[in-house]
Amino acid sequence: MMALRKDVQNWPIVTACAGRMKEIKKALFDRMPPLWRHILVLWGIATIPALIIGAVTNAVAFLLEAPPPNFGSQHSDQWISAFQSIAFAPFVETLLLCALIEISTSLGVRKIFIAASAAAIAGLLHAFITLIWFFTSAWAFFVYACAYLAWRSASFSEAFAAAAVVHALNNATGVAMLFLIALTKSS
């Protein structure tokens, strides 16, 4: 709040947002037992902004007449893609995320930079599938990295679970929405 003028700092919207940002920062970077409750909190923090980001980027892509991403296009069966998104990808991608975090931590990199670099790397890798996924994946992986970092001091298994389960829930939300969209288009 130091960068804001004194009169602006007292505006109700500014003070309300500043308070919420402190709560979000605490939820991201501090372990909040029990693990299952923290996972649910982080799921909301990962998913709601990712949905908004996805809606905005899809709207921009639509206005630019870009071809829409095709869920399940790499397989003839969308159920295989759903399984990969909900079970396989969170497991493998979270293992890679853990390796990146452990290497970065051993080099003395600060938590915020670890989470930001994980977000950028994951966003870039997901952009190979479809450009729009850069934005949603970058935000989500920032949250997954924060989840791992928050629980890292407890144990590897808890830290891995915090990141992987939030990842799986986020992907499951996206898959469910895509299936609902497909159902409405077919009827």
Rank of each mutant, 00 (worst) to 15 (best):
E65H: 15
L97M: 13
I129S: 12
T47P: 03
A119E: 00
A115M: 08
A87Y: 10
L124E: 06
F71K: 14
I103G: 05
R110C: 05
C146W: 00
L100W: 08
L51Q: 11
P68V: 05
A140S: 15
P67H: 09
I53P: 00
S117N: 07
S85C: 10
S104T: 10
L96V: 13
F113R: 13
A115Q: 06
L124P: 03
I52S: 03
F135Y: 14
H75E: 08
A89C: 09
I53D: 01
L124K: 05
S85V: 02
F128N: 10
I114H: 08
A61E: 06
A99F: 08
P90V: 02
A99D: 14
I45H: 04
L95N: 07
A50C: 04
L124N: 06
I129M: 12
A145D: 02
L64A: 14
S81C: 09
R110L: 12
I52W: 07
A120P: 00
A122P: 07
I114S: 05
A99C: 07
A46W: 00
F113A: 04
A59P: 00
W79I: 01
W43D: 01
F135N: 06
D77T: 05
T136W: 04
I114D: 08
L124W: 10
H126D: 14
A122M: 13
A61L: 05
A116T: 12
